[in-house]
Amino acid sequence: MRVLRPVHPVPEPASARPIPNAVLAMLIFVVSETMLFAGLVSAFTIARASAPLWPPPDQPRLPAEETALNTAALLLSGAALFAARQSFWNNARRTRLFLTLAMALGAFFVTFQGIEWVRLIGQGLTLTSSALGSFFYLIVGIHGLHAVVALGVLAYAWTRLQRGWLSPALFGAAEVFWYFVVAVWPLLYWRVYL
């Protein structure tokens, strides 16, 4: 009897990889984005230390207390996403619930930031009014942009979950992105607002 043997080595299935490709790609992206934020925070730290008076006397103060509440909302959304991951393999309904909660808290964070910006612009803090304004809108704006894109990725994952074909790799990549948005914010809050 003739035995058929594979000509090429059998490729490992995707599930046998230590880290799925999508998650690894997102991790590499997050590493590069971390360096972007590190550069911005470093530049802000030097500008702040070099200024004779900080914050500039003719500029409005940043609303640290109100933003603390917003920070709590963002941290809670990270916790909700973690809870969604915990039930990913055994309870799709619970996963959907926590994923929705995470997205709602994230949307609250972005909306609150928008309201805060409108108020600050009305008080005279603009991109060109001072170094504080320039750095504030640049750093917080780039974080906000990341938050919006990450919310889009979470929404895409939610849609696929709703249709019943959300892969663990895609969910993992969305998680990594959102955790990055959540984890970098306390550092920005500490350096920019306090």
């Binding site: 590493v31 971390t34 590190a38």
Partner: peptide, 29 residues
């Protein structure tokens, strides 16, 4: 002195951070 400290701190931060990140990624894999 304050701005010199800021320069020193941010130089150390920017030098060490990529090593930590790449090291953590490699360690996780």
């Amino acid at each position: 002195e304050e701005s010199q400290d800021a320069f020193l701190a941010t130089t150390v931060f920017m030098s060490v951070l990529p090593l930590i990140l790449v090291g953590a990624l490699g360690w996780a894999v």
